[in-house]
């Protein structure tokens, strides 16, 4: 029993960066922009978050820095694809290469310019982002560890997902935003400010990705600088968007399932299932590819998929 609880708790922790990445990418794709730069934006968020945390020793400032830096990198993407109508795939890919490169570059540079030669987060901030402990609640059997034992990041992520779901489905502005992803021409004709919405949504999405990056740097890697600290999670997030069917609430479950897949290899007894580790590592990608194929094989049109995804919108080309 304890074994299972440990596994589930670890799955949530492993899935949290994916949750942020997925939510960020959902906000991009909802306005019709397939942003392959998630990995890059997360890297930039990781770098900014860690450095800000290191220098200010303040969790909130570190989060804000991660959000802003990643949003800024998303601005480059938005400027190129929305205003300058550059190819989305290439721009996103470049953003990834650029983002990883830039964050590694700055990380190493900061590392070498630090007094101690290490970039270890100080005590206070580490305490601020430690797994919460609510007396009483956290001590409950089963429910305690399962619900009240995570780092604040986990709760922030779930909160963002719920808020986004509410925004997208229950507010007029959210519906407008979705209309842009489905048919920007019609949205434009209906008086929706397409460009503003796109910028806002892409920047917001980028910022959310950045928080996920901060989680990678500050929690997963233990608050010290490691090169390539996002380690491909951004790509899984792009895949997770499909798994979550473009729904923020589904992203919560999806991220934790994929988190579980990522740590499965440490929990499955090798004596019973003698499968190689690589097989488990491959699982998230295998499953996503399967979902991709199955959804495309179904003849019915997928209504959640933003119909205009991947295409730029030029008002005079309708």
């Amino acid at each position: 029993m304890e074994f299972i609880i440990n596994f589930l708790v670890a799955a949530v922790a492993a899935g949290t960066p994916l949750l942020f990445g997925t939510l960020g990418e959902i906000m991009n794709e909802k306005v019709g922009h397939l942003n392959l730069g998630v990995e890059g934006m997360m890297s930039i968020g990781a770098c900014a978050g860690l450095l800000a945390g290191y220098h200010t020793d303040n969790f909130i400032i570190a989060l804000a820095a991660a959000f802003l830096a990643a949003a800024l990198s998303a601005l480059v993407y938005a400027l190129l694809t929305v205003t300058l109508m550059a190819n989305q795939n290439v721009t996103g890919l470049t953003l990834t290469i650029f983002g990883i490169g830039l964050s590694n570059f700055i990380g190493i540079w900061a590392l070498e310019h630090s007094e101690t030669g290490t970039l270890k987060l100080p005590e206070m901030i580490t305490a601020q982002m430690r797994d919460i402990h609510i007396p009483g609640l956290s001590d409950l059997p089963v429910a305690g560890p399962l619900l009240f034992s995570y780092s604040p990041f986990v709760y922030i992520g779930i909160l963002i997902a719920i808020v986004l779901a509410f925004y997208l489905n229950k507010t007029k502005s959210g519906l407008n935003l979705q209309a842009i992803g489905h048919n920007p021409g019609a949205a434009d004709a209906a008086g929706i400010k397409v460009t503003q919405y796109k910028y806002a949504s892409i920047l917001l999405g980028g910022g959310i990705c950045g928080i996920g990056g901060a989680y990678c740097a500050m929690i997963i890697n233990g608050g010290v600088w490691v090169n390539n600290n996002v380690g491909g999670l951004g790509w899984i997030a792009v895949a997770l968007v499909i798994f979550a069917n473009w729904k923020p609430v589904n992203a919560i479950g999806g991220s934790f399932v994929f988190g579980a897949l990522r740590i499965l290899k440490y929990y499955v007894p090798k004596s019973i299932f003698p499968l190689p580790n690589a097989f488990y590592d491959m699982m998230p990608f295998l499953i996503t590819a399967l979902i991709l194929v199955i959804t495309s094989m179904r003849k019915k049109r997928n209504l959640s998929l933003p119909a205009h995804l991947g295409n730029n919108y030029f008002r005079e080309e309708r």
Binding site: G232, V238, A239, M282, F285, T288, L292
Partner: peptide
Amino acid sequence: TLFTLMLNYK
């Protein structure tokens, strides 16, 4: 786009 991406990791 997404399918070839997944194949990289496989």
